[in-house]
């Protein structure tokens, strides 16, 4: 298992290198001269000499590979440059805003799993009866609802009408409820539906028949032979949900005035603050890739077919 984890960790390096190169190339292929954009943000008129000077400051006069290498060596040391707008080191801003985003996305992930698993079980257990139909209807609405709009509906209901919850900002746990609901609604629906389907498929597997024939009770069969196996695809799907939840958080932050990285990134996109955009993207990709790595490891740990093959391969 340790070897498996190590190998997966090493695989992160080429992926992140590839992503950073891809980003770098796209950035350089972008329309408009970054030097001019830089001068604009600094309110300096883009005279030819000013542009030339800016190009030199930004290192744009050097070959692209050299630019990448120097960017990378700085980035590895935590230096992602200076925001064109705030003039502060980008990394400081990112690290300042990131925790709030991760807090919200993490809470949403937890909520998704805690709620969707019982819903999926319930739905599968009462297949085609009313609980199942209820969950399926809910799941169907869930995958079609715009999360940011749901956010407003929640505000209308719980803040304006019922006056139970604060409509905006970050504070106690009450501030978390609506953003978490809005962010996780879709993943929750997808997950419940996926678990239901996975359980129904597993329920018709022969090992379930054999378990029943050996005299195991319904609950025991469901727990040990249906649910455990049916959860494996859910583990894989969780990796995907992390991406959706992170993305959803970025949007939802602006609905609830949540002081996270999403709003910071959007303002950077408006002002075309490239160092910020680059660093923001790289951070989120890293988080996403690492989460998927954790999911892979968890899966291998849960599924002996993969765990033992991985051990045998070493």
């Amino acid at each position: 298992m340790a070897g498996f984890i190590l190998r997966r960790l090493l695989l992160l390096i080429p992926i992140l290198l590839g992503v950073s190169i891809l980003m770098f190339v796209i950035l350089r292929m972008a329309p408009g001269d970054p030097a001019v954009a830089y001068l604009k943000l600094s309110s300096i008129p883009p005279t030819p000499s000013a542009v030339a000077e800016a190009r030199q400051t930004l290192g744009l006069d050097r070959p692209i590979l050299a630019q990448y290498v120097s960017w990378l060596s700085n980035a590895v040391q935590g230096d992602f440059g200076v925001s064109h707008v705030t003039r502060r080191p980008v990394i400081d801003d990112i690290l300042h805003y990131l925790p709030a985003t991760l807090q919200l996305a993490g809470a949403a992930l937890l909520f998704t799993l805690i709620v969707s698993v019982p819903l999926g079980i319930w739905s599968a257990r009462y297949k085609d009866r009313w609980p199942d139909q209820l969950v399926r209807a809910f799941a169907f609405v869930g995958v079609s609802t715009p999360n940011f709009w749901l956010g407003f509906l929640l505000v209308l209901l719980f803040s304006l009408t019922l006056k139970w919850l604060p409509p905006m900002g970050k504070g106690g746990w009450q501030h978390m409820i609506m953003p978490v609901l809005a962010v996780s609604f879709m993943s929750l629906a997808i997950n419940a539906r996926l678990l239901r389907a996975s359980m129904l498929e597993t329920a018709s597997a022969r090992h379930v028949l054999y378990a029943r024939l050996r005299g195991l009770g319904d609950r025991q069969v469901e727990r040990s032979h249906i649910l455990r196996n049916a959860l494996l695809p859910i583990v894989t799907a969780t990796g995907m949900h992390v991406g959706e939840l992170l993305g959803g958080t970025l949007v939802i932050e602006s609905v609830f005035g949540w002081p996270g990285i999403g709003r910071y990134a959007v303002s950077a996109i408006y002002s075309r603050d490239f160092p910020v955009i680059q660093c923001f993207t790289l951070f989120l990709v890293t988080i996403f890739v690492v989460c998927n790595l954790l999911v892979d490891i968890l899966y291998a740990w849960l599924d002996p077919r993969i765990r033992l093959n991985a051990e045998a391969a070493i």
Binding site: L246, G247, V251, R272, I277, F280, T281, L284
Partner: peptide
């Protein structure tokens, strides 16, 4: 490399670059 991005993050990045 493209698949390593959450879709919205990649979209935000591209819009950030392209405008």
């Amino acid at each position: 490399c493209f698949l390593a991005f959450p879709t919205i993050v990649l979209a935000l990045f591209l819009i950030g670059i392209l405008g």
